[in-house]
Nucleic acid binder design. Structure first.
Lengths: 161, 161
DNA sequence: AATTTTTTGGAAAAAATTTCTGTTTCAGGC
DNA sequence: GCCTGAAACAGAAATTTTTTCCAAAAAATT
C-alpha cells in the first residue's frame, strides 16, 4: 500500500528519472536513505516497471502515427495468441489493444510517412489474414505523456500531523 | 546526423535507461568517454527528449484505457488552441491526436473503471461543448512500448571495416 | 503500564558511476 | 610528409548511489 510520500516520489520520477535521490528526498521531505529505500521497494513491488529514455519521433523519422482498426471473424483463443505474437514482432506497432464494440483490435503504428505505412500494411496483411482493416491517420500529436494520473491511487491511511 | 553507434546507443537506452555508460560503451564497442559524449550530444540535439520511470497502470489504479473519438463543427485555429489547452489539463488524457477522416480528435484516456470514466466524461463535456463524442473501451492492452522503431533512421555514411 | 517487536528515518562511509581533463590516434586535405 | 580537426582513450575529480549502523517512533504483546 502506498502513502503520500510514495505518491510524491512517483510523481517526480515518472516525469524525470534523472533527478538524484538526494534531491527527490529533499522535495518530498525525507533524507536520502529512506527515500532511496522507498524507491527500491517501489521497484521491487513492480510499481515502477522500468526506466527508459524517450526519443523524439522526428529525430528517428517516425513522426506519423496511424491508428489501425481491425475487425476479424476469428475469435478463438488460439488465433488471438498467434495474432498477438505476430503483431509484437512489428516494431512499428507501439500500442495494441483488444477492444470492445465494433472494432476488435486497435493498433497504434508509427512510421515516417504514408508510403512507409503502405509498405508496413502490406507486410502486415501478408503475415495475417484479416477480414477488415481500416486506417486513420493522425495529423498532429497534441499531447503524449507516459505519466499516469496518480489521483486514483488508494492511499494508506495517513497519520495526522 | 546519426551513425551506427548512435543508433545502437539509442536502442539500448530507450529500452533501459539504468544501464551505466561504461556498460553501454562496452556493448557498442567504445570506451566510456566517447560513448558518454555521444549520449550528451544526443540529449543536446533533442534526439533523447527525457528519461522517465514507467509505472504499472494496475499499481496506480488506471488499468482501463478508453479511446474517445470526437467530432466537432468547430474548426477555427482559436477554438483548437483553447480545446488543446483544456484537454492538456486532464491528467487522465495521456494521448491526444488531431485526426484526418471522419473523426476530428482522438484521445486515449486512462481511468480505474467504467464509473470513473463516466465521471471523467462529465467533467470533460462540462468544460467543452462538443457535438459528438464516442467512447471505445479497451479490454486488454496486448502491447505497449515507448520504444520507437529505429530502422527508419537515415544513417550517416558508415566507413567500411 | 511496561516491554518487546517492528517500522521508519538519519548520518556517514563505501562503492559505483558520471563527468571532466589532458593526451593520443587517425583520416583527409594541402 | 605535415597539418588540422574529429573522435577516441586513460585516468582523475566530482557526484551519486548504495550500504552500514544506529536512533527514534509506532505497534504489538505481556
Amino acid at each position: 500500500m502506498l502513502d503520500r510520500l510514495d505518491k510524491k516520489i512517483l510523481s517526480i520520477i515518472q516525469d524525470d528519472a534523472t533527478i538524484p535521490v538526494a534531491e527527490i528526498a529533499k522535495r518530498v521531505g525525507l533524507s536520502t536513505t529512506p527515500c532511496w529505500r522507498r524507491i527500491q521497494k517501489l521497484e521491487e513491488d513492480g510499481v515502477i516497471l522500468r526506466r527508459v529514455a524517450l526519443l523524439d519521433p522526428k529525430a528517428v523519422n517516425t513522426k506519423v502515427t496511424v491508428f489501425v482498426s481491425i475487425v476479424t471473424n476469428q475469435h478463438s483463443e488460439e488465433w488471438l495468441k498467434r495474432f498477438a505474437e505476430l503483431i509484437r514482432e512489428f516494431p512499428e506497432v507501439v500500442e495494441f489493444y483488444r477492444m470492445s464494440g465494433q472494432v476488435d483490435y486497435l493498433l497504434r503504428v508509427v512510421v515516417p510517412d504514408i508510403e512507409s505505412y503502405d509498405a508496413f500494411y502490406k507486410r502486415l496483411i501478408a503475415k495475417i489474414e484479416i477480414s477488415d482493416v481500416s486506417s486513420a491517420f493522425a495529423m498532429e500529436q497534441i499531447k503524449y505523456t507516459t505519466s499516469l494520473p496518480l489521483s486514483y491511487i488508494q492511499l494508506e491511511k495517513d497519520k495526522p500531523v
